[in-house]
Design a protein around this nucleic acid. Sequence first.
DNA 1: TTGTACGCGTTATCAT
DNA 2: ATGATAACGCGTACAA
Lengths: 363, 363
Amino acid sequence: MAGSLAEVARRAGVSVATASRALNGSRHPVSDEIRERIALAAAEVGYAPSAIAQALVTRKSRIIGVIVGDIVDPYFAEITRGAEDVARRAGYLTIVCNTDRAPATELAYLRLLHDYRAEGVIFAGGGQVAAGAGSASAAQPSEGAQLSEAVESVRADGIRVVSLAARSFDSMRVTVDDRAASYDITSYVCSLGHRRVCYVTGPPGLSTSAARLAGFQAAMADAGLSADEVHPGEFDFLSGQQVALRLVGRPLPDAVICANDESAIGVLTTLRQAGVDIPGEVSVAGLDDTRVSRFVDLTTVSVPMYERGAIAARHILDAGPSAAGDLVLPHRLVPRGTTARRRSSGSKRQRRETPLTAATEAR
Amino acid sequence: MAGSLAEVARRAGVSVATASRALNGSRHPVSDEIRERIALAAAEVGYAPSAIAQALVTRKSRIIGVIVGDIVDPYFAEITRGAEDVARRAGYLTIVCNTDRAPATELAYLRLLHDYRAEGVIFAGGGQVAAGAGSASAAQPSEGAQLSEAVESVRADGIRVVSLAARSFDSMRVTVDDRAASYDITSYVCSLGHRRVCYVTGPPGLSTSAARLAGFQAAMADAGLSADEVHPGEFDFLSGQQVALRLVGRPLPDAVICANDESAIGVLTTLRQAGVDIPGEVSVAGLDDTRVSRFVDLTTVSVPMYERGAIAARHILDAGPSAAGDLVLPHRLVPRGTTARRRSSGSKRQRRETPLTAATEAR
DNA sequence: TTGTACGCGTTATCAT
DNA sequence: ATGATAACGCGTACAA
């Protein structure tokens, strides 16, 4: 076992108090000779301070939690990396909590983080938007209500919680204007001359999905175009792929805009695999600007994930009452190679007829 | 503040002992009436058991750490997800530790996890292979030696450490045969009739890089081909892109094999952007089989990341002396659309001349 | 400058 | 079935 402070003190012939003062950065004066003796003894027994005990007495756990949908999703991975970068530099530990967006799992993790007295928790993703009224009974509060209550309880204990997207509970926010971001990308696509543009949504009931869809609809309306070709999606590659497969049998649209990059990439690669020329025949755009999007040269809009994660972590560490109000970071349109000006229908080249075996490899 | 056990006990008019027994899953008998009183009091004060205090007395922190290069890298993300999935189900917390493969950072994190008395730590990535001899002095032990020592110290404290790739220190291993995996993909590409095949390596000095390169070279030798077109890479998209850019000015090779999927995707998309037909003119293959690879239909070989993470975590949780020897999981060749039989040189279609502005957007 | 002693919130042992 | 009480490992007033 790693020697305890008591053991180090004994070997150095001093009290645990002095040993403690010498071993950690205490401003308390300690004679150089003793200090050296203690350092030596500590090295001998392989002393490793118990962060657990320290946390118990100090009431500072040096732990922060990041609640994400799925760490494999680049969107969440980049947020987590931002948070971890600042946490690490401060000697803090970062806990990843995958919830697959299940409110029950979010709740369970929030409570667990509460138990560990995490100093802060970051809700990386958006939340469920209130379902139809009357769904909550007094006996069995809705999941949303339970979560709100838990968040309140956690905050009452001094744990800082910050959300990176719209949530139903009260907390500090470091967000981005999803609606505006979606509005901008849509306007951009329309400005390219496209008139028939489809949309692939995010998961139903998710605040982020709703905001992005609203942005799309508003932009289409402002452009005097019809926004009725809306396909349900799930923010993942598969959704995009399925929509693309459905699209390909009929007359192609001018453009497809997706609620996020992953689904956009699904549309993009599937359409191309079917022999469709992108952006020649169809323009494709996403939203997020993950690393992968650069790989495939996808037109998208940046909604700084890394920065939001980093800022959130910073807010948690800066114990100061810098309860600075909410932050909404600017987004940025990133035009790339999957969008282009509309070509007159006649000039579209003939599509090669590939037998479409949906190459959906099960995971 | 979250009420303490003492407070709950006081309000319920019982001792902390009974309160403790009633609130957590103790097999100790407690009368139903008292049990109810305690539950009520606990709810009133919003009791949240201090996992910190529990860990201190129980000597079980219910924490596991995963040391990765970069959580945004799908390779590491999938491993982490595997570990977190089993950890969560057991009520454990998973800590992500990004090191960017810097030994110093690995060391720092290992010590921190030691301080927190993590029950186990998973080294997800490969390690530096011993540098030239004589680099370590007695006064300043090499980083490798320091790490080995730290690992030993950690293990002496009962912390289970398992590595998912070749490392210089002693620990349990849940790996894959990187050399064989690389050998197999190379053989496959050669079997397609390709003769001039280039290779893009991983970071120099990394055990994984070395094993994969060795596999490539062995397979080429066995195929009676020359393996001298080896380009240095870093396991990332940029490396692949740069190699592709260099390749494109001269007569194209028959195929390019990359040490991992990320760099393969760099080669793939850059080559295509330059107007090269893949797999018509050049075949491209990677190694890992990350999610993204399915997106771009990349030929690769699966070296189960998720499973390795999950198995490693399981080993840590199963306190049993199932010190079962090392595990090496099978890999699996995954032929997809970026490779094809070699076409006679003459039939390669003319490449369109795109002005190559290296669209390398700085991150 | 150094030492003593208490408390942090739990679990577990031993009485009752 | 329930209650005192001693650890667990450490920080820190307070005393010396």
